[in-house]
Computed example of a mutant assay.
Amino acid sequence: MRAVVQRVKHARVTIKDTISGQIEQGFMILLGVHEEDTLEDAQYLAKKIAQLRVFEDEDGKMNLSIQDISGAILSISQFTLYAQTKKGNRPSFIKAARPEIAKPLYEQFNTLLIEQGITVETGEFGADMAVELLNDGPVTIVYDTKE
């Protein structure tokens, strides 16, 4: 799994002019599922993100987790994170998991975060979405469970 985690002041996702998910301070996550990913990848990634300490403490140091600040997550599925761009000008997405594999793993990832007490808002798997965010910092962390 690949996740692009952005610390945000607020974020929202809109589908056909309707807000599907919206958060205040927290993380906006773009999540890509690889064809070889399993539940173990989702478990590992959810734990790492829940414990990621990039929010400022009283001394201004990035020392607090999303749980420490009672933040929320906007989780967006994004198969394009597995774009292969080495050859030609049109990316290939052959390494991205098929929807029948990716959707359950994306949903399980979100459930694992919720089980850790984190509020999670989402878009809609496979939908054409408009995502807006105010990046805070900016702080952007990329995780890849295969690296």
Rank of each mutant, 00 (worst) to 15 (best):
Q6F: 02
V13N: 04
I76Q: 02
E56D: 11
E36R: 15
G26A: 06
L39F: 12
I23M: 02
T111L: 06
K86N: 08
E40W: 11
D59W: 14
V142M: 13
P138T: 12
P91N: 04
G88I: 06
I15T: 07
A97H: 09
T38D: 14
G123C: 00
G88K: 07
S75F: 12
L39H: 14
A11Y: 00
M28K: 07
K87H: 08
T18G: 02
R12D: 13
A42Y: 05
Y143C: 05
L113P: 08
M129P: 10
R98P: 02
L133K: 10
D68V: 12
V139Y: 01
A83Q: 02
M62L: 12
K87G: 07
P104C: 02
G123N: 04
L105F: 09
N89D: 14
V4E: 08
A83S: 04
V4K: 04
L30K: 04
I69Q: 06
I76F: 03
I15R: 05
M28S: 04
D37V: 08
L133Q: 15
T18D: 13
V120A: 10
L105D: 01
E35W: 11
G88H: 10
L112F: 15
Y44E: 10
Y82W: 02
I76H: 11
L52W: 10
S92L: 08
T140D: 03
D68H: 11
S77V: 03
L134N: 09
E35H: 15
E24C: 04
A46S: 13
A96F: 01
N63H: 05
R98M: 15
T18C: 12
V142K: 10
S92E: 02
I114H: 01
L52S: 12
I76T: 05
K47M: 12
G117F: 01
G126Y: 04
A102D: 03
Q51P: 04
I29T: 04
Q43D: 12
L133E: 11
D59G: 15
I141K: 07
K9I: 15
L31A: 07
V142P: 03
G88F: 00
L113I: 08
Y44L: 13
A102I: 09
G32H: 10
I66E: 02
V142C: 02
E115T: 07
I118E: 00
K103M: 09
K47Y: 14
I73Y: 01
N135A: 00
L52M: 13
E115P: 07
G32Y: 05
V131I: 09
R53Y: 04
E100Y: 03
A97D: 01
Q84R: 13
I73N: 08
K48D: 01
R98G: 12
K86T: 09
V139M: 11
P91L: 02
T14I: 15
E40P: 04
V5N: 00
G71L: 06
S92K: 00
